[in-house]
Design a protein around this nucleic acid. Structure first.
Lengths: 129, 129
DNA sequence: TTTGATGCAAATGTTTTGCATGCAA
DNA sequence: TTGCATGCAAAACATTTGCATCAAA
């Protein structure tokens, strides 16, 4: 197993993610980090985002709008995706692991977890009557 | 709005999906359809898969293994993805729409639905002791 | 000094698209 | 005839990777 060495680029990426409530794409991370590290490459951003999510330090969100998004909060939590503006928001709700039991009833395999996101209209996109 | 005209390619794709329990990728659909329609193009397969799923005649599944999969059964239902072999299986379980209510509590927007899949080990991949 | 990390560019894999032609209505 | 659908190839996109070089340990 390869030892992980410090890199200021990785540190900057983690820092950036921990200080935003947005759920940026890899490209957004790249563009923003580049303001402070003009020489950083997109490959490095991808490599570090993958490394950090494998290490459990960040979350990789598959929101299915074409590209992955990243969340600096590694605690398992649910997300909401606005179908109007596309924003990804954190939801403050309990874990709903009981649905694993529901899914497992009568299923011959082993259910280990679930991936869930909610969609709808966010407060900013609700039309004012 | 453009009228939709019959095409035997689209019919073959829909037929193929309705008669399989697999959840094939676009490329798999293409390769299999090509056995009967050697001249069909991948572009046509993609165009029709998108059209059919927009029409609600099939389901597009974002299983997060890089490419989308398709399901000839358009009724909402849940899927299980085996993390060992990657197979996508249908789950026979009730709709769990109560989780929308849980997610909506205290959330300022409107929750309209959720996307969920379960993962774990399928019966064929459970090691025999 | 050793070895992981970087920057760059090229490659990859999936999906979309432009366009001339084919075919349904 | 009209115009949607097709086949083909090129393009678009997100992501990964090979490699020489840089820097952490």
């Amino acid at each position: 197993m390869a030892a992980i060495k410090y890199s200021r680029q990785r540190e900057a990426i983690k820092d950036y993610l921990m200080n935003t409530k947005q759920h940026p794409t890899a490209d957004t991370v790249y563009l923003d980090i580049r303001k402070n590290y003009p020489n950083i490459s997109l490959g490095t951003v991808y490599r570090n985002l993958n490394l950090l999510s494998e290490q459990g330090e960040i979350l990789k969100i598959n929101c299915r709008d074409g590209c992955d998004r990243f969340d600096g909060n590694p605690e398992p939590h649910y997300h909401f995706i606005c179908k109007i503006c596309g924003r990804v928001l954190d939801l403050e709700m309990e874990q709903i692991d009981h649905i694993n039991v529901i899914a497992g009833a009568g299923f011959p395999g082993v259910i280990e977890g679930h991936v869930t996101y909610f969609y709808g209209t966010c407060s900013k996109c609700i039309p004012i009557n």
